[in-house]
């Protein structure tokens, strides 16, 4: 369980901002800015943060759906960022993705069978009968029926479609699945079904997940470790229990405080985040969070804090803990 499957070092993704008649580069959006973490085999790493903090971009850069600007992504000791296009294409057999919107991520003109069969076709399963058999098997595994194979995506509900999306990701028997907000587009009642399915599949196929979400409740339910992102940077990463019981970074504290408690009589004394997310095109100097931080010090405005191990296995990027 302790073997490292994926190791990300100093990953950066900057999007150029172009302007003017000639489309010259006038600036850049630092969507992912110097992110490092690792994922151990068989665990689930949750990535949380507000929208626009770069968590989805991180997922896409890991799969090289977007080319990273800098940094390395080591998968089983192999640097994905150095692979040629064709090598990367083959490598996708091992790393699959579940997308956020089950209505947009399935081609509306293909039957479920074709959608699920395609990963096998492109990764060299030549036998047609074998492909069909595996499609039917996989449908049963994700809780659909094999007779659904002939149908089109629009004939399914959101939850069912997401099951198809999960089935597609599983077809090539990958080792790592990057789930990009897989339940945020679903009804709450369906969310738990899909989460349970993901957990069951993890046990069944020894999967490793990177689970991207903005809902801390969902992440707590499924994750072994959780990383918190803010403005393209990782501000805290540790085991899920530790994070929820003993958050270190002020941003994490604020996020946890913002989880609604389903009790109308409860008077809450908590500090909620004020202000908006600063523009990633022009992030604040020093600690990116200092504009909204309740514990802001002088040093925060000038120096960017590094992600350091404050307790064993508990990393945070905050000057409060720098001795």
């Amino acid at each position: 369980m302790s073997e490292v499957l994926l190791k990300v070092d100093n990953l950066k993704k900057y999007f150029p901002i172009t302007g003017g008649v000639l489309g010259r580069k006038v600036g850049e959006v630092k969507a992912v800015d110097d992110v490092s973490f690792f994922v151990k085999k068989g665990e689930t790493l949750g990535l949380v943060g507000e929208s626009g903090c770069g968590k989805s971009t991180t997922g896409r850069v890991l799969m090289r759906l977007l080319e990273p600007t800098e940094g390395t992504v080591e998968f089983e000791g192999q640097d994905l960022t150095k692979l040629k296009a064709e090598e990367m294409r083959r490598m996708r057999k091992e790393i699959q993705m579940v997308f956020q919107d089950p209505f947009a991520s399935l081609n509306p003109r293909h039957t479920v069978e074709k959608i699920l069969e395609e990963p096998l076709i492109v990764h060299g399963v030549k036998d047609k009968e074998e492909r069909k058999r595996r499609v039917r098997e996989m449908l049963e595994v994700v809780g659909l029926n094999s007779y659904h194979a002939k149908r089109y995506p629009h004939q399914f509900s959101g939850g069912q479609r997401q099951r198809i999306g999960i089935a597609r990701a599983l077809m090539t028997k990958p080792k790592l699945i990057i789930a990009d907000e897989p339940v945020s587009a679903l009804d709450v009642s369906i969310q738990s079904q899909v989460l349970n399915l993901l957990e069951d599949l993890q046990k069944e196929f020894q999967l490793t997940y990177i689970f991207i979400a903005h809902d801390l409740g969902v992440v707590k339910h499924i994750s072994d470790r959780v990383g918190v992102m803010y403005l393209g940077r990782l501000v805290e990463i540790t085991e899920a229990d530790k994070l929820y019981e003993n958050p270190l970074h002020p941003y994490t504290k604020a996020l946890l405080a913002s989880i609604p408690i389903p009790d109308p009589d409860l008077q809450q004394e908590k500090e909620l985040l004020k202000g908006d997310l600063p523009s990633p095109a022009n992030p604040p100097l020093g600690c990116a969070f200092h504009t909204r931080c309740s514990a802001c010090m002088e040093v925060c405005k000038t120096t960017r804090p590094e992600l350091v191990e404050i307790e064993p296995g508990h990393f945070a990027a905050c000057h409060l803990y720098n001795k």
Binding site: R90, R92, F99, T172
Partner: peptide
């Protein structure tokens, strides 16, 4: 469209 991203993620040429 996201299904084009998905197709790419699956490993299609």
């Amino acid at each position: 469209e996201e299904y084009i991203f998905a197709a790419k993620a699956v490993g299609m040429k």
